[in-house]
Amino acid sequence: MTVPVFRFAPSPNGHLHLGHAYSALLNQQMARAAGGRLLLRMEDIDRKRCTPELEAAMQDDLHWLGFDWETPVRRQSEHFEVYRQSLDRLIRMELVYPAFLSRSDIKHEMQSATEKGIVWPHDPDGAALYPAADRALSMRERQQRMNDGHPFSWRLHMNRALEHVGEPLFWHETTVDSNIEARPQDWGDVIIARKDMPTSYHLSVTIDDALQGITNVVRGKDLYHATSIHRLLQHILGLEPPAYHHHDLILDRDGQKLSKSRRDTSLRSLRLEGVTPEQIRALVGV
């Protein structure tokens, strides 16, 4: 019988807040109820914002909270070569392409479309979809720009990726105990990696969940729609998909998602005010 494997995977780019506490404790509660394992992963591919000091502070807060995990902790920054191998595979399959448009270029494309009465499409997070201009570049033009040092990112050629899959994709959502049809097309040509970093959140989280044998991903509803991209990458790379549980978010007084920049909700500031782990558990309802 397969032992369920859960994971809590924060990014050490700030202090943990009440929303993180809820997600961590819910993972722990569900792992214990299922007789499963619980892992901690540091999603620290952003080396400018993620620091060892912030990771140490996170682990200290988690210990204080009563969150226990298996060691060692997986740090994404230590596995760039693993992600590069998957990126190279996608390049060989011609499912990604180098994208050179800057933010100002994209804004200009959008303005031109608006002047023509065209409504520019946006992804589920509200960001404008990437224009299709770079798809038309020849291999020679792409290589020349890359050789000349132009900044670029590797983007998934969504239409080609969907043709490669050729069938609807689904994920199992345990909050409703139902299979949900993935809609990766809603995201357009998402970033898979960058010139100076051979991965992105979407690629690294997909690979790590597979390599760590994660069977149950428990995370916030803010990542619900992103699951469509992860299912697409899982299918293309031949990875076993986990079950997903997208929990409610802990919101601030204004009904907004909590942010690490809001010090009043950080576990660190609450600890300094004398709040106990038991009170934190009561606040988040776990």
Rank of each mutant, 00 (worst) to 15 (best):
L54W: 07
P241Y: 00
D148T: 07
S102E: 10
K48C: 15
R89L: 05
S77V: 08
Y224P: 11
P277D: 07
A226V: 09
T2L: 14
R41A: 04
S86A: 15
H172Y: 14
C50G: 01
V190I: 12
P242H: 02
E141I: 14
S104H: 11
T71A: 12
K260N: 07
I250L: 10
V82T: 15
A243G: 11
G274F: 03
W187I: 02
I250T: 09
A193N: 07
I192V: 03
G213Y: 01
T114I: 11
V119M: 11
V73N: 10
P198K: 07
I236M: 00
R75P: 01
A133H: 10
K257Y: 12
I180Q: 09
S259A: 13
S138A: 14
L162F: 02
P4R: 07
I214V: 11
V73W: 05
L90G: 00
M158S: 00
I207A: 03
L283I: 14
T2M: 12
A226F: 06
M197K: 13
L25F: 04
A57I: 00
G285F: 11
L156V: 02
T51W: 03
S266I: 10
D264T: 14
Q143P: 04
R253M: 14
F6S: 03
M158D: 00
W69A: 03
V218L: 05
V286L: 15
R140Q: 15
S102D: 09
D125I: 10
S112L: 14
Q76D: 12
W187G: 01
M158F: 00
T265N: 06
R268V: 08
A56L: 05
V217Y: 04
H15F: 07
M42V: 11
S261H: 13
V165D: 02
L237P: 01
L62P: 01
I118E: 12
R89H: 10
R268Q: 13
R231Q: 06
S228C: 03
R49Y: 09
V286A: 07
S104T: 13
A24K: 01
G274I: 04
G19V: 08
G220P: 02
D125R: 12
H157D: 02
Q185L: 07
R103I: 06
D264F: 15
A161M: 00
G188M: 01
Y22M: 12
H202F: 04
R253E: 15
N159Q: 12
L101G: 05
S204F: 07
R268D: 08
Q279F: 11
G238H: 00
F67S: 03
T199S: 15
D60R: 06
R253Y: 15
Q279W: 13
I214N: 03
V119W: 10
A210C: 08
G220C: 10
L101N: 02
P98H: 01
E181R: 11
I236Q: 01
V73I: 06
R219S: 09
Q185H: 06
T206I: 02
P151Q: 09
A127D: 13
M1P: 09
K257G: 12
M30Q: 15
L90W: 00
Y97S: 04
R41Y: 11
R142S: 10
A210V: 09
K257I: 14
S23I: 15
S204V: 08
D209R: 03
R32Q: 15
G255F: 13
L40Y: 00
S77M: 11
F8D: 02
S11G: 08
G274A: 10
N179M: 14
R281M: 14
D125P: 08
